[in-house]
Simulated scan of single mutants.
Amino acid sequence: MQRRELLGLAALSLGGCAAPTLQPPSPPDAPPPLPASASRISFASCAHQTLAQPIWDTIAADKPDLHIFGGDNIYYSPPQWSLEELQRAYALEAAEPHFARFRRAVPHVALWDDNDYGANDGGAEFKFKNESKAAFLEFFKAPANDARRTRGGIYDARVFGEAGRRVQVIILDTRWSRSSWTVTDQRGAPGKERYVPDADPAKTMLGAEQWSWLEAQLREQADVRLVVSGIQVIVEGHGWERWGNLPLERQRLYDLIAKTRASGVVLLSGDRHFGAIYRQTQGVPYPLVEVTASGLTHPWKEAKEAGPNRISELFTEVHYGMVEVDWPARTVNLSLRDIKGVAQRQHRIAFDDMKAST
């Protein structure tokens, strides 16, 4: 009871704010500085602020150099949206003791997905995205001069390490400018659960500004590139949110990787409330591997999917993902780890297998 009352007070203290500003002062309790290099990178998504989150202690004990918050960092996407209630949700998450310890101790970067963006399955049409963006940047304690404050969305990129041992983290925003999905004509049918593919060339996933920015990022020198998307990218066989619902935009991504000769791309995603590993070989400059890690608090234990390009069984327990770059062996080791930190799904990629053929 006492803890609940304290959480309620914390939430109330953030309520009733005036219109948000996109230029708040630098927070006094800024997160740990980002590391100069990063070879162990954890990532995870889907944490409900009303649920206990002991897995943060497990991730911290795994000693990542960097953590990626992969979206749905809280859950607030109601039909009647309000800034006050969004801030209450963030206050509950901030007060969760395992999370609070973790973000004070572990350097991190973050993206959002629909439930912290503020609209379930939402895209460019969401009316309160500016307010939601301000709250997101406040929660993750972005400094006043953060480039995201002047962009349309929260896309971002960071580089870690020196030449020859360089990891680039590219965070995509698949909400801010994304065109509307085409709703299924057979709701709940396998492969058509909510949406169907739409090849309308006028529709966009990222918007012109972000596409141009992404091309510049892919031209940067890097040995390993972690491209992070809230929704799944290469995954086939289901009718939930995914890049495949805008197939021309997904092919545009593949073609851009080829055009820029961006080697070392590994895709990370969340959203689905389970973990899995996928591999795509068609229409891509080299085989692309995607790891979905989605289940910090409430995984979908009964999940099933056709998974035609899935190379692992689904993992439906509480979990997180880990990327380990083995520089001497020139490999990237990917895993999904349980509440004890034990790898339950694994895949290894050689650097030489992440290069476009000449």
Rank of each mutant, 00 (worst) to 15 (best):
residue 175 R to L: 02
residue 95 A to M: 14
residue 261 R to H: 12
residue 228 V to Y: 09
residue 281 T to Q: 06
residue 195 Y to K: 10
residue 54 P to I: 01
residue 232 Q to H: 06
residue 5 E to I: 14
residue 69 F to M: 07
residue 180 S to A: 12
residue 78 P to T: 01
residue 194 R to Y: 14
residue 162 E to M: 03
residue 195 Y to R: 04
residue 6 L to F: 12
residue 134 A to R: 05
residue 45 S to L: 07
residue 5 E to A: 12
residue 13 S to E: 13
residue 91 A to G: 11
residue 36 A to Q: 13
residue 332 V to N: 05
residue 333 N to C: 07
residue 229 S to E: 13
residue 62 D to W: 00
residue 65 D to V: 00
residue 51 L to W: 06
residue 105 A to N: 10
residue 47 A to M: 06
residue 255 D to R: 14
residue 235 V to G: 07
residue 14 L to Q: 14
residue 40 R to N: 08
residue 249 E to F: 00
residue 179 S to Y: 04
residue 278 Y to G: 00
residue 19 A to M: 12
residue 228 V to N: 06
residue 164 G to A: 04
residue 204 T to Y: 02
residue 327 W to V: 02
residue 159 V to C: 06
residue 305 E to V: 15
residue 110 A to H: 10
residue 281 T to D: 08
residue 321 G to V: 08
residue 177 S to P: 01
residue 64 P to L: 02
residue 151 R to L: 13
residue 87 Q to R: 14
residue 212 S to I: 06
residue 75 Y to P: 00
residue 249 E to H: 02
residue 331 T to R: 12
residue 346 Q to L: 09
residue 267 L to C: 02
residue 313 E to G: 13
residue 180 S to G: 13
residue 349 I to N: 05
residue 315 F to Y: 15
residue 215 E to L: 04
residue 150 T to R: 10
residue 220 E to G: 10
residue 241 E to G: 04
residue 274 F to S: 02
residue 35 P to R: 09
residue 150 T to E: 12
residue 350 A to Q: 11
residue 263 S to G: 15
residue 258 A to Q: 07
residue 189 A to N: 04
residue 71 G to C: 00
residue 138 E to K: 12
residue 311 I to M: 11
residue 173 D to Q: 08
residue 249 E to I: 02
residue 76 Y to G: 01
residue 9 L to R: 11
residue 54 P to E: 03
residue 203 K to Q: 08
residue 341 G to T: 10
residue 10 A to W: 09
residue 6 L to D: 09
residue 240 W to R: 11
residue 58 T to L: 02
residue 263 S to K: 14
residue 105 A to D: 10
residue 269 S to R: 00
residue 310 R to V: 13
residue 42 S to N: 03
residue 20 P to H: 03
residue 233 V to H: 05
residue 108 H to I: 09
residue 5 E to P: 01
residue 150 T to S: 11
residue 3 R to S: 13
residue 350 A to C: 08
residue 194 R to F: 14
residue 216 A to V: 03
residue 135 A to E: 12
residue 48 H to F: 12
residue 332 V to M: 08
residue 314 L to N: 14
residue 36 A to W: 03
residue 115 N to T: 09
residue 169 V to H: 07
residue 231 I to C: 09
residue 11 A to P: 01
residue 282 Q to K: 15
residue 355 K to D: 05
residue 229 S to M: 11
residue 274 F to L: 14
residue 167 V to W: 05
residue 36 A to M: 08
residue 245 N to M: 15
residue 140 F to L: 09
residue 202 A to N: 15
residue 292 T to Y: 06
residue 84 E to W: 07
residue 285 P to I: 00
residue 316 T to A: 14
residue 57 D to E: 06
residue 205 M to Q: 12
residue 199 A to G: 08
residue 192 K to G: 00
residue 20 P to G: 08
residue 64 P to I: 01
residue 145 N to Q: 15
residue 106 V to L: 10
residue 125 E to Q: 13
residue 266 V to C: 08
residue 288 L to Y: 05
residue 298 H to N: 10
residue 289 V to C: 04
residue 18 A to G: 15
residue 132 S to H: 11
residue 215 E to N: 03
residue 268 L to D: 01
residue 143 P to R: 10
residue 171 I to E: 10
residue 287 P to E: 04
residue 198 D to S: 10
residue 84 E to S: 15
residue 358 T to Y: 09
residue 85 E to A: 14
residue 211 W to T: 12
residue 298 H to A: 13
residue 91 A to T: 02
residue 27 P to L: 09
residue 164 G to S: 06
residue 339 I to V: 12
residue 335 S to M: 04
residue 157 A to C: 06
